[in-house]
Write a protein that binds this DNA or RNA. Sequence first.
DNA 1: CGGATTTGACCGGCGC
DNA 2: GCGCCGGTCAAATCCG
Length: 372
Amino acid sequence: MAEKKTAATENSLKNTAAAAALAFPNQMMMIPENSFSNPNTLFDISCEQPHHQKTSSFGFIDMLSVQDFTTPSSLFDDDFLQNITPNPSSFLPPPSSTVPEYSEVVNTPLTPNSSSMSTSSSTDQPPPNEDHKKTTQTVEEEEEEQEQDQQNTTKKQLKPKKKKEKRQREPRFAFMTKSEIDHLDDGYRWRKYGQKAVKNSPFPRSYYRCTSTACGVKKRVERSSEDPSIVVTTYEGTHTHPCPITPRGSYGLMPAETAARLGGGGIIGEGGGSTSTSHFVIPSHQMFQQQLTPRTTIFQQQPYIFRNLITPPPPPPLSFSTTSTTTNPTFNPPAPSLFQERPFCPSTSLARDHGLLQDMLPSQMFKDPKEE
DNA sequence: CGGATTTGACCGGCGC
DNA sequence: GCGCCGGTCAAATCCG
């Protein structure tokens, strides 16, 4: 079970990265979490976004569901892939190889401003050496810790935890989305369990948990204090269940399993309940063009992989909440095929994702993070 | 009425 | 040791 979970975790990381890259080609950035407050990094790619932004308005859902791009582009290099998928040839690697939670990948910023992003890092990020320790941890240890962690989590965090052992965190993925909607619908059902005021920010941070039992995936949603139009969504953990999305429209074609591995990623649907959703579609060829623009900046730093997607402010949110790819009045989704063409083949999705991941991000982005 | 949200309290980690 | 802060709990409340 733990093994399964671990593998899933790894896969989620991989898939999420790929999906994010696919979905937000020219908007995606991976940056340290505390760089969220730095709008410059965002504007670097968002404000200057040309007209094509409209067509790049990828929804969160789309991002998570679109995976089957078969592009020859090779934007990922092995470094990154190995960090994300230590065992690229196999998608059932030993759990210890997962450790994406501390995958240390910092991408070389493509923008001048990005330096600010690379310098900052989350406070709870262990030093690289520690990462290594983690990665070299034995499978048993990992599993035990994960189980313990899970138990602690499921039972109650108020319970005394094992000393020494720092609470291990699931891999986290942060998305920055330019949206009026705080809680983007990703196809999963979330229950809000807390809200806290964010220091130095007028906007509170909301805490959500996947409502599915035994699924400990959490996410945090907050707005950038610098740019209120930007929503930072941070996922933590991996779904252990299929996406509960209602089979509406083409989204139903997305393999639930894959969605579940997306660490909060999923497909649009009723899942979010009252929350509105973003929905964007972009043609694959366009995506790849865009992702090659200089404004595409991707940062990764352990233990998180941050993806910043700046999506244009959605029209009336409700217009995005549909699963139909043609409901966006301001944007003509060229490719329902993005979803429909994708074979329902979860078992191969990982391999696909791997390839996608590799294809989606510039190799230079995944060079040695410490080069910064 | 059941599920989701709100919100104040609580806990643990961390820095000083 | 203490205070700050992020994260979580859980009772109260809201809502469909």
